[in-house]
Design a protein around this nucleic acid. Structure first.
Lengths: 109, 109
DNA sequence: CTGAATCATAAGAAAACTCTAATATGATCA
DNA sequence: TGATCATATTAGAGTTTTCTTATGATTCAG
């Protein structure tokens, strides 16, 4: 029935998924959320941890975290009163990795 | 002075470029603009061409094209009364290619 | 149980984005 | 020149996103 379609690229697939792609990109297209997601690459962090790294108020951070949870881009684990967040969407990881290549690497700490 | 930093990934670079990354992603995070950009992969198209493929009014398309021009994601060429658009940002091409892999390939025409 | 700490939620204001409708610009052609 | 075609621009309305402020829920220590 279906044949192997081995063109080097078929970006047109997005045309049929433009709504989903728009939605996905919108979830990433926010400074606070980008910083959250980037901070979570390779490690789990608590909300307090994130608050020390990102300059936003607690409710604002919490609202962005709620959005990311809803989007299933992150998941949580509770330990006492602390809630740890981690990345759960490999697509996010890939996009962050690509975007990362667009900017010059800065001096590591 | 600087040393080779050859970690497998250093997504933290985005942290220092979160504003730019947000701006870049916002420009992509729109159905009409995604369809425009995707339609332009590998080919030049006129505004009329785009209008036949994308279901929006002429002024709306023109406004989105203005934004993409401003963002330098596309460039134009005039031939008589027709204006042709083409992609000019390799980063856009790369992101579209990646997003594309997130969706199942559909049957080619 | 009371209080403090950590995190979440909700309502409304403010800001940003997108569309509608009307008009303008530039090119071609009779 | 005047009409028409292709595309762009503008003002304002409508919609969506984000923030502010206040409050709620859960956990733990004393």
């Amino acid at each position: 029935m279906s044949v192997i379609t081995n063109e080097p690229e078929r970006t047109e697939v997005i045309l049929e998924h433009a709504n989903e792609a728009e939605h996905f990109l919108k979830q990433l297209a926010n400074k606070t959320r980008l910083m959250v997601l980037t901070s979570l690459v390779g490690k789990e962090l608590s909300v307090s941890d994130l608050l020390t790294r990102i300059d936003v108020t607690q409710p604002v951070l919490s609202q962005h975290l709620a959005l990311l949870r809803e989007a299933k881009m992150v998941a949580t684990r509770r330990d006492g009163q602390v809630i740890y967040y981690r990345l759960t969407d490999e697509r996010v990881h890939k996009v962050l990795g690509l975007i990362n290549t667009f900017y010059p690497a800065s001096m590591p700490d």
